[in-house]
Design a protein around this nucleic acid. Structure first.
Length: 323
DNA sequence: AAATTGTCCAACCGCACTGCA
DNA sequence: ATGCAGTGCGGTTGGACAATT
């Protein structure tokens, strides 16, 4: 089966999007909502294929996207979710609603993969877990060992998610929750809010084009702007270089955003971080089956009542990830 | 200063999945 | 049951920029 890709059509433009195109696309989505991408080129006159339009919206123009460096918490989450889910970037991204699957995938490929490899080489089999990983990598691991390792990884990841959902480790999630609550609660008209955010994205883009800044400067600028788009003023979740070097922003979030209860938190979290959250962002259709990632994991987690700080205590040395 | 190498990330490609006629 | 159309997803690429020689 199959059909020729839409991008094969003659006359379709490829390559980087211009601010003009972005504005046209955002205006269209503002008016008609996301979806029916097939109609976008014909309605807007954009010489882009529908797929390109969807991608541009999903990965760049969509409101609520956080750009800039990943926080330690995000990094840990990605590592653990990758261990649990594999390269299911969309599924992983559903737990980090501010990040696109593309972003996470890029981050994994450019940073984490290398980092983890380095660490594995670094410990060069001294550590018990390193031994296992290296032997697994060289295919000399027995099936039993492999299964135990796999089970351990799954348990580890389950624990991570459980802790992530727990009251004690609410920091990262309170941040996400706050953002999504804003979207969900309808404190502002959902479309108006969302697309206003998009307009800001465009404004940012135009600004950077105007200035013709070097790319690095531009992205720094983007981070700042996006942070202000996504969060209350004065709470920049994007780690600057200083933040990377140890300043924990989660505390400031904790002080700013209280939690009602574990139940309400988790249910909110479920809504906010499951693919449905993406729907709120205007990215996807609501699909009952898409509840799967978090619901299944939640069920898994609820089966086990063992609890321990995982995310906060996670270290690469102790938790090598196979890939 | 110029050339080379490395890094990052937006965008593309192609397959898979789903819904519909 | 079948084929088509639309969309989602993961892998890959290419260009811009940064760092190094």
């Amino acid at each position: 089966m199959g059909r020729p890709p839409c991008c094969d059509k003659i006359g379709m433009k490829k390559g980087p999007w211009t601010p003009d195109e972005d504005i046209i696309l955002v205006s269209y989505v503002q008016e008609h909502g996301p979806g029916n991408w097939k109609a976008v080129p014909t309605h807007t006159g954009l010489t882009r294929c529908s797929k390109s339009c969807r991608l541009r919206w999903t990965n760049y123009l969509r409101p609520g996207i956080k750009r800039g460096s990943f926080t330690d918490q995000e990094e840990k989450m990605i590592i653990q979710l990758q261990a649990l889910l594999g390269n299911k970037w969309a599924a992983i991204a559903s737990y980090l609603p501010e990040r696109t699957d593309n972003d996470i995938k890029n981050y994994w490929n450019t940073h984490l993969k290398r980092k983890l490899k380095k660490l594995q080489v670094g410990c060069s089999g001294k550590h018990e877990s390193c031994k296992e990983v290296s032997s697994a990598n060289s295919n000399s691991i027995s099936r039993g060992q492999w299964e135990r390792r796999l089970q351990a990884d799954i348990n580890t990841a389950k624990q991570a998610l459980k802790d992530a959902l727990s009251f004690e480790n609410k920091n990262l999630f309170s941040e996400q929750l706050m953002i999504n609550n804003e979207l969900i609660s309808g404190s502002k008209p959902s479309q108006g809010f969302s697309y206003a955010s998009s307009t800001e994205n465009i404004a940012r883009l135009l600004k950077s084009w105007d200035k013709k800044k070097p790319k690095s400067e531009e992205s720094k600028c983007s981070s700042i702007q996006d942070s202000s788009n996504n969060l209350s003023e004065g709470t920049d979740p994007t780690p600057s270089d200083e933040n990377k070097s140890g300043i924990d922003l989660s505390e400031s979030f904790e002080s700013l955003f209280g939690f009602e209860s574990f139940e309400s938190s988790t249910s909110e979290f479920s809504r906010s971080t499951s693919p449905e959250a993406s729907y709120v962002h205007g990215e996807r259709k609501p699909d009952p089956n898409e509840l799967a990632p978090l619901s299944v994991l939640e069920n898994l987690l609820l089966e086990h009542d063992q609890g321990k700080d995982f995310l906060n205590n996670f270290s690469f040395d102790e938790n090598p990830v196979m890939f």
